[in-house]
Each structure stands twice: as structure tokens, then as C-alpha cells.
Design a protein around this nucleic acid. Structure first.
Length: 403
RNA sequence: GUGGAUGUAGUUCAGUUGGUAGAGCACCAGUUUGUGGCACUGGGUGUCGCGGGUUCGAGCCCCGUCAUCCACCCCA
């Protein structure tokens, strides 16, 4: 027997329905905010992700499904969505028009990780990217939209926000932080020492209690924000307060991808285990130019569909359509003709084996239709059908052409 | 990549000291070819993850391997 590869899953029945429900709900709301659907390739040139996500990140460093294709191209399966969308935006030369563009997408992403709860090798994200809008109002709007999506899905969450600063203030802060960390280097854990070189801000997030105690006195990014970033971050908080969206400022919140700046946010659930981030995003004003486009401010987010699937409860299914069955084999062709006609407008389940009334009624219960249609010998001879409304329990024999 | 746990029916799980496979749910058939959900009767549907080893004998013990789950790490 051939099974799916490690960390990859088949979705069927209620799972695939939950998946569709989440995508449909999110897409409906995104369209209301002016987003249009974009579809980009799953396979991209490896250089795209090295330049966007950043070579220092684990994603690019060790988790990509990367290979050389038959044309000797260095390619990989996308590990995230934003890079491809930005590439498409630039490929279409949309960066040369002063028009704001908003795209939503969803689809599979691939990371060669060790699977655990909420972490698959093939997983699915829904995301939005807004190009050309530099105002923090857009950051606020995008956060509001995600909150609306989660409210619509009936999911509880905690919102964490932070400002990562921009190219003016971030490097200065990073420098200060690194030198401060180097002073206490010997006492910090092994992981932290590694992070000082790779992603020093991550050190602040260490779960080791001893490290946390040492870090209390470390410089905080919020004290280093510049005249542009600081007021924007204040504005964002004011707007969220005004909207009644609860949030906590997490000084240690860092995005895992290198391209983020200024506003960063994460929606977290406490109900799904260690992989608790259900949506994350932020501003990435520099990414378009990193990928050879004209400088274009942008902000976006992605939500993890599988993680959200653990949290949503589906609305109960209403009985729908028709069940059709025959109690005499001769009636089946008649039934098929009727089903084809009815299927122009309704869901129809047809039972191909002729059997007794009681057996059919058991089939009816399984199919969960609104109506049951049966044809027996009498009906066949008279050109009629037996029709029952399963809800009102009313039944009648009517002419076959009247259905 | 590191650590821990677990692999038995479609599913959830039981299986004693090593003695030839078991329950609930689900499923299938039937209970007069005309009134469903209930009930009753019958049916086990299995490569005990896989490969070795120990043993007269392995679901159980040993080794290896694969997979799953959980946590670290990372991240959506």
C-alpha cells in the first residue's frame, strides 16, 4: 500500500468541507475589502526565496523542497506565499503604475520540517497582500479584516502586535542589542548564543527562565523607534482601541521572515498546542525593491488553514435534495431520466439497486435528503411517483412530470 | 536536527505470566415488496506497522526499521 508522504495529508468528508468553509469565509470577507484572487505557481526559482525570506532563516536554510529540474534550473516548492505574489506583482509590471493593488490567495506551501501538531510538510495558507499603500491605516484595516474572518468562523484568538522599526531605526537597535547580549553571552543558553549571530531579536523570546532573567535589562526596541515608526505604532494602537479590538503589545514578537518591517502582528490560539500562531503578518515596505521592482510599500498576512481547522465548528447540515429509489428493477431507467432532469437544479442521490421499501428508507436516512422519491410497480404502470417530504412527513403520489 | 510516547478490525481501544485474536461504535445482510431514524437476529471485515532474532510456541521478550503523535527548535 502506498501512503502519503510524511507530513502530508489527504482531506476528505468533514475535513475537506471544513477546509472549503474556511477558504470561502476568508475569501468572501477579503473581497469585501477590495481584494481580488491571484494564483501563482507552486514551483519557483530558488533565488526568489533566498532573496525574500532570507538565507539566515530556517525556512530557506534547511526546510525547502529544493531540486534541480530537467532544464538544470535551481527550483523549489514555495515555502510561503508572499514571495511569489510579490514576484508576480513585479513580473506584471504593476510596480510601475501608481495604482494600489490588493490580492488574496490560498494554496499549498511546503517545508521539510519534522511534523507535529499543527505543523505539516505540506500545509495550506490563505493570505492577502496589499501593495502601494504606505499608510498605517492599511495595517489597521488588514488586522480588522482578519479579526472579522475569525469572528465569522467563531474562533477565539489573542492578537499580539509589535513594531519592528524600519531601515532607519532597526539596524541601530540591532547593534545595541547585540553588544548588550555579548556582555552576558557566557551565561546565556546555547540556543541564544547561536541566535545572537542569526536573529538576535529571537533571543528576547527564549523560553529558558535563566535567560529571561538575564534579559530583563536588555534594550527594548520600542525605545529605539524613529520619528516615523513611533507615531505610526501609536496610531495603530489608537485605531485598534477605537475599534474595540483587543491586543497585547509583545516586545519580543518577531516575524520569522526577513522581509518584515514596522507593523508586525500575530493571531494566537491557546487551544491547539505548541504551534499556536493561526495568522501572522505585517508590513514589508522593502521587499518589492529587493526583488528588483520599483520601491512599493506593502502589507500582508497569511493564516494557517490546518491550524484553523482544529478550531472551527461547522454549521449543522440541513437536509438537501432528493433520494430516488426503485422497488422494481424495471423502474430504474425511468428513475435515471428523472434524476438527470432534477439535477439541473437540485442535489439527487440515486440508489441503483431495487429493493424493499424499508431498505430504501434506511438509505434515505443516510443520504439526508429533504425529499424521498420511490417508484414501485404501481407507480411505474401509472406514470406516477411516490414523494415524501421528510421534514413535514407529508407524502403523495403525483404524476412523474409534475416533480 | 534533538528528546519522549505510541503502532492490534473501517474507527476507538482491550488483550493477564509468552499458548493460536476480542469489545463498543461503524459497516453488511435479514426481520412478508409500501412507511424511515428505534429495536431484534445474523455476519469479524485482521499481514497484531514492517524485517530479523530468542522460543516447542511471540500481539506480548530482544534488535533494527518505518510511520504516527507530543514537545524542543522553527513557524502559519
Amino acid at each position: 500500500m502506498i501512503n502519503p508522504l510524511r507530513g502530508m495529508k489527504d482531506l476528505t468528508f468533514e475535513e475537506s468541507e471544513r477546509f472549503e468553509y474556511i477558504v470561502n469565509t476568508a475569501a468572501t470577507i477579503a473581497r469585501r475589502y477590495g481584494y481580488g484572487y491571484i494564483e501563482t505557481p507552486i514551483l519557483e526559482e530558488t533565488a526568489l526565496f533566498k532573496r525574500s525570506v532570507g538565507e539566515s532563516s530556517d525556512i530557506v536554510g534547511k526546510e525547502m523542497y529544493q531540486f534541480t529540474d530537467k532544464g538544470e534550473n535551481d527550483v523549489c516548492m514555495r515555502p510561503e506565499g508572499t514571495a511569489g505574489i510579490v514576484r508576480a506583482f513585479i513580473s506584471a509590471k504593476l510596480d510601475r503604475q501608481p495604482v494600489k493593488q490588493k490580492f488574496y490567495y490560498y494554496g499549498p506551501m511546503f517545508r521539510y520540517e519534522k511534523p507535529q501538531k499543527g505543523r505539516l510538510r505540506e500545509f495550506h495558507q490563505f493570505g492577502c497582500e496589499s501593495f502601494g499603500e504606505a499608510s498605517v491605516y492599511e495595517d489597521f484595516t488588514i488586522i480588522t479584516m482578519i479579526a472579522q474572518i475569525f469572528d465569522a468562523l467563531g474562533i477565539g484568538y489573542e492578537l499580539q502586535i509589535n513594531s519592528l522599526g524600519c531601515q532607519v531605526c532597526m539596524p541601530k537597535y540591532r547593534e545595541t542589542l547585540v553588544s548588550s547580549l555579548n556582555e552576558i553571552k557566557e551565561e546565556l543558553c546555547e540556543d541564544c548564543n547561536r541566535r545572537i549571530g542569526t536573529n538576535p531579536i529571537r533571543v528576547l523570546d527564549c523560553k529558558n527562565d535563566k535567560c529571561q532573567a538575564l534579559l530583563v535589562e536588555s534594550p527594548k526596541l520600542k525605545d529605539y523607534l524613529c520619528e516615523a515608526c513611533d507615531p505610526d505604532f501609536r496610531k495603530l494602537k489608537e485605531l485598534l482601541d477605537q475599534e474595540g479590538i483587543k491586543y497585547t503589545v509583545n516586545d519580543n514578537l518577531v516575524r520569522g521572515l526577513d522581509y518584515y518591517s514596522k507593523t508586525a502582528f500575530e493571531f494566537v490560539s491557546s487551544e491547539i498546542g505548541a504551534q499556536s500562531a493561526i495568522a501572522g503578518g505585517g508590513r514589508y515596505d522593502r521587499l518589492v525593491e529587493f526583488l528588483d521592482g520599483k520601491p512599493t510599500p506593502a502589507v500582508g498576512f497569511a493564516l494557517g488553514i490546518e491550524r484553523i481547522m482544529e478550531l472551527v465548528k461547522m454549521p449543522e447540515k440541513e437536509p438537501e435534495g432528493y433520494y430516488m429509489g426503485a422497488m422494481t428493477p424495471e423502474a430504474i431507467p425511468t428513475l435515471l431520466k428523472l434524476a438527470t432532469k432534477k439535477r439541473l437544479t437540485d442535489k439527487v442521490t440515486v440508489e441503483y439497486s431495487s429493493k424493499g421499501f424499508k431498505s430504501h428508507m434506511k438509505g434515505v436516512d443516510k443520504a439526508n435528503p429533504r425529499y424521498a422519491v420511490l417508484i414501485g410497480e404501481d407507480e411505474l404502470n401509472n406514470g406516477t411517483i411516490w414523494l415524501k417530504d421528510l421534514e413535514s412527513k407529508e407524502e403523495q403520489v403525483i404524476d412523474i412530470n409534475d416533480l
